[in-house]
Design a protein around this nucleic acid. Structure first.
Lengths: 228, 228
DNA sequence: TGTACATCAGTGAACGCGCGTTCACTGATGTAC
DNA sequence: TGTACATCAGTGAACGCGCGTTCACTGATGTAC
């Protein structure tokens, strides 16, 4: 039977990744150490090279998995709402983002924090990195198709319109400049708020950051989807 | 003359910090190495201990300097505007934040990126960390005093009001819940947008991120200051 | 069903490097009389 | 103004540790006949 070896291999691979995440959580991605993983597994350090070609490759796999994890989570949160409940979808998506970030803070840092210096992300990471973004883009497209317009608009210069053309090109439904701006603003506010919370910039201010986050996303949704 | 030794001391201290920042820029704060600084200075590694008690203390000094640097920059940008030009002040403040971040990307990462693991910020960093925040808070206070109201408001729950009370407590002018929410949203969007840009999450999308940033801050200002 | 051979996981020593911090010391610069 | 003494910057060796990666190897598990 070929399965037993394959199964052991899968288990070992999973264990390596688990310990790697643990290490990143406690000492940071820059200090991820293969030797320490090996020590914790009670195995020679060279043994790990049967599973990962290098330290960088292990990091890459972890990053891809994290992107897929958060992407899947956001997709599911969105899919659980009825299609025309746009406010509900926005709430679900933003809540799930924060929940994921708080549950997996080190993974969040790995993706959205300071890039690991000297580490150049290979092209394999691009597609998974787009999953969570696409959820928002489709939400905006559905909103626009349903007649939503952002409440607040500002006159956009030629320069900005040119930039937004590139964003528009990747979608079936052509978003207006206003909608793109509102969407990006909401997206930035979301990640800004989560980063502040996770990286310890509001520790002294809030005891219940979730309450603030909910109010924040409600406000962003109102602006973006043009409802009151 | 006591000045010559003091002057040399200052120069050496400055040089150490300069090289440290260079290293952080190229290899990340986690890989900051005293020995490498010493090597670059052509000096024994032990010599650095005449200037900094430890690696952590050097990091702390750099972080405090960065907070002061960005704090001073934002304060000056604000001070250069006439007090009642609220939109102008908001534009100046947000522009200066982005400019500083782009000019000193590694310092931005040091402060607003993933915390250096194992490093616990001492209390000396608290006061300088509040400088740039205070500029926004006073801007909001002035806006409210001038009768500005955020355009979009959402019903705030009791939980949120309780949280915002703590923010309110630190200011002479008592901001409304709506104003606090609008301000925090704008602040989060600002740092979210800057982080996205600096940490490479919009590389493939924008060629002129500044144009987008300007539109973004204009929109945030409109919401926050209630003007059209 | 049994045997020969190929595959693969894991070993352990080695290479060549890195690090923060301590400590007894030298020798130059400043200070007090 | 000159001399004795104290201060301070910098040395270089050492302690005790870390790392990623390679390589020839053993021995168990799977495969093909």
């Amino acid at each position: 039977m070929t399965g037993i070896r394959a199964k052991a291999r899968l288990e070992t691979t999973t264990e390596i990744k688990r310990l790697a995440r643990e290490q990143i959580a406690s000492k940071g991605a820059a200090n991820l150490s293969l030797r320490e993983i090996a020590r914790e597994m009670g195995v020679a350090s060279s043994a790990l090279y049967r599973y990962f070609a290098s330290r960088d490759q292990l990091l890459t796999v972890l990053i891809i998995e994290s992107y897929d994890d958060i992407g899947g989570m956001v997709e599911r949160a969105d899919a659980n709402c009825s299609r025309d409940d746009l406010v509900g979808r926005w709430r679900a998506v933003s809540q799930s983002l924060r929940t994921w970030a708080i549950t997996n803070p080190s993974d969040y840092g790995l993706i959205f924090g300071t890039p690991v210096p000297g580490y150049e992300a290979p092209t394999d990471t691009i597609a998974p990195a787009l999953r969570y973004t696409n959820v928002l883009l489709h939400l905006l497209a559905d909103a626009q198709a349903a007649g939503c317009k952002p409440l607040i608009t500002v006159p956009t210069t030629k320069g900005v319109s040119r930039e937004y053309k590139r964003v528009r090109a990747n979608l079936e439904i052509k978003l207006t400049d206003e909608m793109i701006l509102a969407g990006l603003a909401a997206w930035a506010a979301l990640f800004g708020a989560i980063s502040f919370e996770l990286f310890g910039h509001v520790d002294t201010v809030f005891t219940d950051p979730e309450a603030h986050f909910r109010a924040l996303t409600d406000m962003l949704g109102t602006q973006m989807l043009g409802m009151k």
